[in-house]
Design a protein around this nucleic acid. Structure first.
Length: 853
RNA sequence: GCCGAUGUGGCGAAAUGGCAGACGCAACGGACUUAAAAUCCGUUGGGCCGUAAAAGGCCCGUGCCGGUUCGAGUCCGGCCAUCGGCACCA
């Protein structure tokens, strides 16, 4: 790159102001109770999704959201808010561990280096984070409290009557270990041999690990689980009070997947009638009379008990094959339904009919009861299955329209169903459910797709569990033994048997003579589930967050505490759902003041490469912020990130675009500065303490209004457009009124803080007001009076087409406007020979003359 | 398959149901310059009529088809395309 002359000296200005801000700690937020804390100011908590500090450093996608929040943070400070705007590191996770496996270097070392790199990059952009609140999930002083929160979850149960979590001590039933919110279970898990670990469903994509793309198989293992399903209903309902994009709420609703229906008991018609009952879940109990067969999931516990002698070999073989299927195979083979007859029959409780019981893997053990009734006439999957295995098909719903009842899954009229014949589906469902309940054959039930959260990982680089095992039983270690710090290892490789790497540290594992430590670690989500709470009070070593600090920053009159949370859609379900879950547990236990963590959520769009493709190393289209800043400066970088287009939209990067923005900032600079003969910049002589013209006042106030409203609605691109219009309007002005320039610098400050601070300082040195720095100034108010005009230009339309314009006093009545329009020569010509049918007047906008032959 | 988002100049985009394309990029022309860069000024959706050239005039145009309305990029119905999510959840 050739050494180009800088359009303005950003390379000197930017480091200078960053140093000043650092020295003065201008962006440090005080907590209630601290010296100089001003309780009269309202609070504003604005949060970014904190990054995983990878070795690759930032690319221009990261700072998009960060710039948006920084603008809002700076704006809110000027508006007189106490602003909490922190940043930290989500630093546990697989990449550092993989690197450790390769190099033997401790993950903490790589993490430290990566954090330093990320932090330096962020600082260069001039973000106004309160770095005194920086946190790192891998810091023992942080994960001590992650472990502490786990213990709260472990020591709680969900009281369904109260619909909330309570300390396990309030549980009166037997076997408290069975109701804890954190529990151990042997569950079929997604085992990834390559990574040597179990993965959550969400971390498996198309049967392969999300990280690395390695094959994943199902395998039963003893795992820690968190009972998030207890909160399904609240996680669903309490979305309503949040200001989140509807699309994201919908994603969560679908993920939780509530469905209402009934559980119905079918008895097994065995020769020796052992009285087994099989419970099925259905959303359509009104189709009970259409059940012509039943299906059990291959893993269903009753399969063993009901299978007949002659069917046993076939069933056993089928089960084994199903168990061996990887997720990948299951997905790929989803189209072709398989199954095997068990030899047994069930009795349909509504009509005592004997129907065959099949075993098929299209029924999932983990959902509902793991058993279904097959109603081929009114369920697509059942229809496919029935046709393949030649099972009878019986219509029990007649569509309202004339559609074919076979395969009809909508609502209609119940037929061939004595108890509910002639009733529309909804009523039929209600009636048959009541009927089943009355006879003790079933009951209304609700099911969720949401599963409990698989919470353990066989990894090194994660939070160890504060749990020890004694006589095959788990128990919590004492709170004052926290944090549980993982031991250093020589070898971080997975053991391969499914045993976690921590097993290697024999000394560490031996907790006492008869107790061993839990060697699993927590998943990466753990640390990010509550970091927003720690930011409120990051140095507190007595509590995970101080009560007063939590009440202040996480308070307010809305259900959610964080006022604005910005991040990518990729966390729409998992992170946001897990964090809400932990928050609710802590809320129930009385540690928090609001039931939800994040009141307003905004997703920034993905930044694509210049080639309109997703940025990736292999495409070679990654743009590094450092390069952009070297060439154009941080202010231009920030402004371009915002000028690209709407925050939430996906949009491509363009270096030409950065250049355009950089030209704009240079125009701002040269508006107030001129270069003298010696090539030095000095204040323009056009700057005067003069009254602005009325046109100048008007555009100034229009700009205040537009920029203010656009920041509030996060429409930063149009705010910048308006400021460009402002600058264009003043570029050739003979006199630059100081007052207008000062206002403009404040408006531009959140976007280009370095440039505006420098210019403000230059103005102060000459005009000597008692103003220290733009970042500490008040946000200007606009006055509607200056925006109003005496006259407006109105459009005259004939039949909806613009034909002319006219200047009209804003005081003109509708009738006056009409007659001026009709008197217009051009309009007369067009209307000539036609009859005017109607005249529409939109005040201050237009007149539409409707005329025809 | 189901759900959601998006679709406007050469490009990024803007428009409480009221002048489509603000602002920026690119391109072109001009000024400044020995020259270039930078800067400043101007032109720039398409087609047609008009004129010596202008001025001026008309028509079409926001993915496609239809509707509501005096008036639709915007509202309603139906399609198409791209992107994202879910995917045997009974």
């Amino acid at each position: 790159m050739s050494e180009r002359r800088k359009p303005y000296p950003f390379d000197q200005i930017e480091p200078k102001w960053q140093t000043i801000w650092e020295e003065r700690q201008l962006f440090h937020a005080l907590n209630p109770g601290e010296k100089n804390f001003d309780p009269s100011k309202p609070k504003f908590y604005i949060l970014d999704m904190f990054p995983y500090p990878s070795g690759a450093g930032l690319h221009v996608g990261h700072p998009e959201g960060y710039t948006a929040t920084d603008i809002v943070a700076r704006y809110k400070r000027m508006r007189g808010f106490n602003v909490l705007h922190p940043m930290g590191w989500d630093a546990f996770g697989l990449p550092a561990e993989q690197y450790a496996i390769k190099t033997g270097e401790h993950p903490a070392t790589t993490t430290r280096a990566n954090v330093a790199k990320f932090k330096a990059q962020l600082k260069r952009i001039g973000f106004s984070y309160d770095w005194q609140r920086e946190i790192n999930t891998t810091d023992p002083r942080y994960y001590k409290w992650t472990q502490w929160i786990f213990l709260q979850i472990y020591n709680s149960w969900f009281n369904a009557k109260a619909n909330k979590a309570e300390p396990i001590s309030t549980y009166r039933g037997p076997a408290p270990d069975r109701v804890r919110l954190a529990y151990v279970a042997d569950v079929p898990v997604n085992w990834c041999a390559e990574l040597g670990t179990v993965l959550a469903n969400e971390e498996v994509v198309d049967g392969k690990s999300e990280i690395g793309g390695f094959p994943v198989v199902r395998r039963p293992m003893r795992q820690w689980m968190l009972r998030i399903t207890a909160y399904a209903e609240r996680l669903l309902n309490e979305l309503d009070g949040l200001d989140w994009p509807e699309g994201i709420k919908l994603l969560q609703r679908n993920w939780i997947g509530r469905s209402e229906g009934a559980e119905v008991d079918f008895s097994v018609a065995g020769i020796d009638d052992r009285g087994y009952k099989i419970r099925v879940f259905t959303t359509r109990p009104d189709t009970l009379y259409g059940a012509t067969y039943m299906v059990l999931a291959p893993e269903h516990s009753l399969v063993d008990l009901i299978v007949t002698e002659e069917q046993w070999p076939a069933v056993r073989e089928y089960r084994e094959r199903a168990a061996r299927k990887s997720d990948l195979e299951r997905t790929e083979l989803a189209k072709e339904k398989t199954g095997v007859f068990s030899g047994a029959y069930a009795v349909n409780p509504v009509n005592s009919e004997r129907i065959p019981i099949w075993v098929a893997d299209y029924v999932l053990l983990g959902y509902g009861t793991g058993a279904i009734m097959g109603v081929p006439a009114h369920d697509e999957r059942d229809l496919v299955f029935a046709r393949k295995f030649h099972l009878p098909i019986r219509e029990v719903v007649r569509p309202f329209g004339g559609e074919d009842p076979i395969g009809f899954v909508g609502e209609g009229i119940a037929i061939n169903s004595p108890v509910i014949d002639g009733l529309p589906s909804r009523e039929a469902i209600r009636k048959i459910t009541a009927w089943l309940e009355e006879l003790g054959l079933g009951k209304g039930a609700i099911n969720y797709k949401l599963r409990d959260w698989l919470f353990s990982r066989q990894r090194y680089w994660g939070e160890p569990f504060p749990i020890v095992w004694e006589n095959e039983k788990h128990r919590a270690i004492d709170q004052n033994e926290l944090p549980v710090v993982p031991p250093p290892l020589d070898d971080y490789k997975p053991i391969g048997t499914g045993e976690p790497p921590l097993t290697r540290a024999r000394e560490w594992v031996r907790y006492s003579d008869n107790a061993l430590r839990e060697t699993n670690t927590m998943p990466q989500w753990a640390g990010s589930c509550w970091y927003y709470l720690r930011f409120c009070d990051p140095q507190n070593d007595k509590r995970f967050v101080g009560e007063e600090a939590e009440r202040y920053w996480m308070g307010g009159d809305k259900p959610g505490g964080v006022d604005l949370y910005v991040g990518g859609t990729e966390h729409a379900v998992l992170h946001l759902l897990y964090a809400r879950f932990w928050h609710k547990v802590l809320f129930d236990l009385g540690y928090l003041s609001k039931p939800e963590p994040f009141q307003r959520l905004v997703n920034q769009g993905i930044v694509l490469g210049e080639d309109n493709q997703k940025m990736s190393k292999s495409r070679g289209n990654i743009v590094n912020p450092d390069d952009v800043i070297d060439q154009y400066g941080a202010d231009a970088f920030r402004c371009y990130e915002m000028f690209m287009g709407p925050l939430e939209q996906m949009k491509p990067w363009s270096m030409r675009g950065v250049e355009g923005i950089s030209r704009f900032l240079a125009r701002v600079w040269r508006l107030l500065m001129t270069e003298n003969q010696a090539g030095e910049w000095e204040l323009s002589t056009r700057l005067k303490e003069a009254d602005p013209t009325s046109a100048q006042t008007k555009i100034t106030h229009a700009t205040i209004k537009k920029v203010t409203e656009d920041i509030e609605s996060l429409s930063f691109n149009t705010a910048i457009s308006q400021m460009m219009i402002f600058v264009n309007a003043f570029t050739n002005a003979e006199t630059l009124p100081l007052s207008a320039m000062r206002i403009f610098l404040v408006l531009l400050n959140p976007f280009a803080p370095h440039l505006t601070s420098e210019l403000c300082q230059k103005l102060n040195s000459k005009f000597g007001d008692n103003v220290s720095d733009t970042t500490e100034q008040k946000w200007p108010d606009y006055d509607e009076r200056f925006l109003a005009e005496d006259e407006v230009e109105m459009v005259i339309q004939v039949n909806g087409k613009v034909r002319d314009r006219m200047k009209v006093s804003i005081l003109a009545t509708e009738d006056e406007v009409k007659s001026i329009a009709l008197a217009n020569a051009r309009i007369q010509r067009l209307v000539n020979g036609k009859t005017v049918r109607k005249i529409v007047v939109v005040p201050k906008k237009l007149v539409n003359v409707v005329a025809n032959e």
